[in-house]
């Protein structure tokens, strides 16, 4: 779908007033950066796409597919880190719509069919994270008195640790993930709410402390088709150190992070962020010619990850491509 088609599809959609209002509201929230948790983004995306699908399905399969892809691409373009999640949810809705059109319940109209199918999907989809953390295969990964190291604050990892803390006591070492420093927030939650033994370390101490650690648990924004993990910058440092000490690395990602794309260059997906977060204006002005580099992501190769936990349970990252085949239609891979 090229840009011209996309524009046409968006234009056509804006005549569906109600659906368009949903899309616009969500796009504003995305632009404002109001989201800090991928599961909120995934759920809202699914809701919005449901409205779009229901509104446009009367005009036939081609029309609804075009509208969904246009909205998916439009939203993903605004979503920064969450572009993969939005893309993946779009692909799943597309597949579902296709299946409903292929095999409709003749008693009802196509609109009712679509509505029914997507409502069922949403009921389950909204529970993704709960399903994940209560999944026995996931929950049993942390045993008692274990020392777990995590990097920064991933909402998925946080839920997992909080859930595990209900069953047993263990220690958590948190690398703060500067310059964001979101590890501090996780430390506060785990220490005050879950009453776990928490140790906060700067990123520089990861190598020194790793011998004390039993398992490394990390989150990320996308799992790519070869099992590698797109995660906050610094995660590759953690996994490299873990490999040095032969510590298992567990990556946690809901299935909506499963992206049917292959990384073609390790650096291609790395975005650079604004330098001011690592060096404020005042200090930067003392070294006018210094080029400040603040990458957003690391791509952790699949061979550095021992186990991938998702709402589907645990699996080795090398079989991710099979999950990808199950979840998405081949034709939807390039949105």
């Amino acid at each position: 779908m090229d840009t011209k088609d996309l524009e046409a599809a968006i234009k056509a959609l804006s005549s569906h007033k109600k659906a368009w209002k949903f899309v616009e509201a969500f796009s504003h929230e995305l632009l404002r950066g109001s989201y800090t948790d991928s599961s909120d983004v995934a759920n809202t995306t699914a809701e919005v796409l449901k409205v779009v699908a229901v509104a446009t399905c009367m005009a036939g399969l081609d029309n609804v597919r075009r509208s969904l892809r246009a909205v998916g691409r439009y939203l993903a373009g605004l979503a920064g880190n969450y572009k993969y999640v939005i893309g993946n949810v779009t692909r799943r809705v597309l597949k579902l719509v296709q299946e409903t059109f292929d095999d409709p319940d003749e008693e009802f109209s196509i609109q009712e069919n679509i509505k029914e199918a997507l409502s069922l999907f949403l009921d389950e989809f909204n529970q993704t994270r709960d399903t994940m953390v209560t999944n026995a295969a996931v929950a049993e990964q942390i045993h008692s008195a274990e020392v777990i190291l995590t990097f920064g604050r991933s909402a998925t990892v946080e839920r997992l640790l909080l859930e595990a803390a209900k069953k047993r006591t263990f220690e958590v070492v948190i690398a703060e993930n500067s310059p964001r420093g979101d590890g501090h927030g996780l430390a506060k939650v785990l220490a005050s709410e879950a009453k776990l033994e928490v140790t906060l370390i700067p990123d520089s101490a990861i190598f020194a402390v790793m011998p004390r650690v039993h398992k490394v648990i990390i989150g990320g924004e996308a799992v790519l088709a070869n099992g590698s993990l797109l995660a906050p910058a610094g995660t590759l440092l953690v996994t490299t150190v873990a490999r040095h000490y032969s510590k298992p690395v567990v990556s946690c990602a809901e299935l909506y992070k499963l992206t049917p794309l292959f990384p073609l260059s390790t650096m291609a997906d790395v975005k650079l962020l604004h330098p001011a977060t690592i060096l404020n204006e005042e200090i930067a002005s003392e070294m006018p010619n210094v080029n400040i580099v603040n990458p957003a992501n690391d791509l952790v190769p699949a061979e550095m990850i021992s186990l991938l936990l998702s709402d589907n349970g645990g699996c080795s990252p090398v079989v991710v491509h099979r999950l990808v085949k199950q979840l998405y239609d081949e034709v939807d891979v390039p949105l």
């Binding site: 690592i278 080029n291 400040i292 580099v293 603040n294």
Partner: peptide, 15 residues
């Protein structure tokens, strides 16, 4: 000529 970054960008910088 100098580039500057934090440890979290080390893999990118060393690359």
């Amino acid at each position: 000529n100098t580039d500057y970054g934090l440890l979290n960008g080390a893999s990118y910088l060393i690359h």
